[in-house]
Amino acid sequence: MENDKLTQLWNLQKNNSSDDTPENIIKLAKKQRSNQFISIGILSITVVILIAYTIYCSVYKWNNFTIGLLLMISSLVFRIMLEFVSLHKKERQLISLDNKSFQKYLEKHFQLRKKINYIITPLCFAVYTFGFTLLLPYFKQEFSKGFYTYLLISGFLSIFIIAVIVFFSIKKEHKGFETLREE
């Protein structure tokens, strides 16, 4: 994305509002883009780890353990795909629309992001958590009581921490949407 060209184009179309500047919109778009890439990166690393673990542990077995891992992987892959589609679609619109049209597009984009954040993300999170709970009987059978307790506590603590991070990320993104809406 070439910000200089976009800034020049939008400066030609800019209205007199001091808050509604191309720089502010580009700044918000870059911040959201950066956050999406961070999310995609973290989710991708998790998927790679889960796939490696699946290959290592479940090559010839098909049981609830494998189903649990596949549920965890599929929920993360689905979420990654949504982020890529959202990111690509927004960038394509950014380049093709003028300032006013892009702001209207952003409003629609933000409504879609709300659906992703408040409906799809919790569903993916629930599928991931369900997949993790399917692993627990196998962990209990295969590992010592102490290590199983560690996996149980660290697993659910990790899920809780991720939920808190996701919650605050969504809240931050929503605040950015509201800031742009006010401008």
Rank of each mutant, 00 (worst) to 15 (best):
I67M: 10
I67E: 08
G68F: 08
L69T: 03
L69S: 01
L69D: 02
L70N: 00
L71T: 04
L71K: 01
M72P: 10
M72L: 07
I73V: 05
S74H: 07
S74P: 11
S74Y: 08
S74T: 08
S74E: 05
S75M: 04
S75D: 01
S75L: 03
L76N: 00
L76F: 05
V77W: 08
V77Q: 06
V77P: 09
V77L: 09
R79V: 08
I80C: 13
I80L: 14
I80M: 13
I80N: 11
L82T: 01
L82Y: 02
E83G: 09
F84V: 00
F84T: 03
F84Q: 04
F84A: 00
V85Y: 08
V85I: 06
S86M: 03
S86K: 07
L87D: 15
L87G: 10
H88R: 09
H88L: 12
H88N: 11
K89T: 00
K90Y: 07
E91D: 07
E91T: 06
R92D: 05
R92Q: 09
R92E: 07
Q93E: 05
Q93K: 04
I95D: 14
I95E: 15
I95Y: 13
S96H: 05
S96M: 08
S96R: 01
L97M: 13
L97Y: 13
L97W: 14
L97T: 12
L97I: 13
D98W: 10
D98Y: 12
D98F: 12
K100P: 11
K100R: 12
K100S: 10
K100I: 15
S101Y: 14
S101A: 14
S101E: 15
F102V: 07
F102K: 08
Q103C: 05
K104Y: 14
K104L: 14
Y105L: 00
Y105W: 07
L106C: 04
E107T: 06
E107R: 15
E107K: 15
E107H: 15
K108P: 09
H109F: 15
H109P: 14
F110G: 05
F110K: 00
Q111Y: 06
Q111L: 01
Q111I: 07
L112W: 15
L112H: 15
R113P: 11
R113W: 04
K114H: 11
K115C: 08
I116A: 12
I116M: 14
N117G: 11
N117I: 05
Y118A: 04
Y118H: 02
Y118C: 07
I119H: 11
I120Y: 11
I120S: 01
I120M: 05
T121W: 13
T121I: 08
T121P: 10
T121D: 06
P122M: 01
L123W: 06
L123K: 00
C124D: 01
F125N: 01
F125L: 07
F125W: 05
V127T: 08
V127S: 09
V127F: 10
